[in-house]
Amino acid sequence: MSAAPPDNDVLWARGIVKSHHGTPALRGVSLGVREGEMLAVTGPRGSGKSTLLGCLSAQLPVDEGEVWFHSAPVHTLGRAGREKLRRERFGYVGPEPHLVPELTARENVALPLLLAGAGHRAAHRAAGEWLERLDVADCAKLRPADLQQDRRQRIAVARALAAEPPVVFADDPTAPLHRDAREQVLRILASAARSHGLTLVLATHDPALARFADRTVHLVDGRIAPEPAAAVAAAGN
């Protein structure tokens, strides 16, 4: 049994090993995420960024190693425990919007709040405000199939932020967006994180976006590269 993680880390991982049907994705990753910081995880395609975010955000059980959230173990939690953690503490945006197709944009954004037990009126009011912040208030009553991909992705970002969870995971959230929209959405994500004191873990292969972050971790072949700063600087130039 190891010692509990340092107190100032909201998330703390040690020696995570994870493979998908025998294909190793993570081969021993250790990192800490401090409260309120914005951490970028960079690396090429297939370097294990999504798997790392999946393990940290309690979507995937780890094969080996430990994950702690606020001094509480995540790696020992069962399925129901991880679901509760995702519902109440974490927000998530993926590379695809993955909205619920039969719900309107506003209902999609209100869903995490409703699932967490908020009242209908409060949930819808909060959803409306977040849609406005992400410049998609005009789509509130439309369904995902009637919208363009970049608007759907903005709605997905609003959904992740609506419940104002302590930690937001963003796995390549700007993938479906055009270049000008990328910066804008990321800026909204970053400013929302700062103004609400949220912790943001961002996975991206785009070094230009990683500069929004306070700190960068570089993943290569499922391991943390020894000199992330140098790697990012090299990629940036």
Binding site: A80, R82, L85, F90, V100, L111, P112
Partner: peptide, 16 residues
């Protein structure tokens, strides 16, 4: 399947 995955990611309990 994609919609169910999205709901699962939000932490929707299977009972719901």
């Amino acid at each position: 399947r994609p919609a169910l995955d999205a709901l699962d990611r939000l932490g929707t309990p299977p009972g719901l």
